[in-house]
């Protein structure tokens, strides 16, 4: 594709890896050649690099697509998701899902990223609501310096929550940091 197609969020194939353009700057000195300055993020490893293209050059689009899928179950093949449109089921290996497995609630909707038709990653909603299954009681007289306590949510993920949280409470969690955001009143 012609570099004039480059934009923020464009997917680019470079040195055998898929990248997404995370920063994009077009500069063109008076009557000179246009420069497309990009910061690229490797869509599989997350590594970031800078690359400048000149007008008239070409780039290869990365063969990546994102599909809306639903989490079904985990077994020895890994984590199985179902395509919301085709109902096709795909199993993702543990290492692809990684730490995100802590937030895989039954039937949660996620975006699964495919590169050359192979699943390579999962994008969770940035915030999800989970139920506290286990936590220490917020006893009066606890050391005042520690305003949080340990708790466990339904997937087994452990988080720090404020003292007023009780078992059975629903809490909002930021999946990017894995941390508590707020209590959801029901």
């Amino acid at each position: 594709m012609d570099v004039s197609e480059l934009r923020k969020n464009a997917k680019v194939q470079l040195d055998g890896h898929p990248y997404v353009v995370v920063e994009f700057l077009f500069v063109k000195p008076g009557k000179g050649q246009g420069l497309y300055k990009c910061k690229l993020k490797n869509m599989i490893t997350g590594a970031v690099l800078d690359r400048t293209w000149r007008s008239g050059e070409r780039f290869d689009p990365a063969n990546v697509e994102s599909r809306k899928m639903q989490y079904l179950f985990k077994d020895q093949n890994g984590f199985t998701f179902m395509d919301n449109e085709s109902y096709e089921q795909v199993a993702l290996a543990d290492e692809i899902v990684g730490d995100d497995s802590a937030f895989l609630l039954d039937q949660i909707a996620v975006d699964v990223l495919f590169y050359n038709d192979r699943p390579v990653g999962v994008t969770l909603p940035s915030h999800i609501v989970m139920t506290i299954t286990e936590c220490e009681p917020g006893v009066k007289g606890d050391t005042a310096t520690n305003a949080t306590k340990n708790a466990t949510v339904e997937t087994g993920h452990k988080i720090q929550v404020p003292l007023f949280i009780r078992e059975g409470d629903k809490v909002k969690i930021d999946t990017r940091t894995g941390s508590y955001v707020e209590r959801i009143n029901t």
């Binding site: 004039s4 077009f26 500069v27």
Partner: peptide, 9 residues
């Protein structure tokens, strides 16, 4: 001018 798109273009 085709394909001149950016903060200053």
């Amino acid at each position: 001018r085709r394909a001149e798109v950016g903060d200053r273009h």
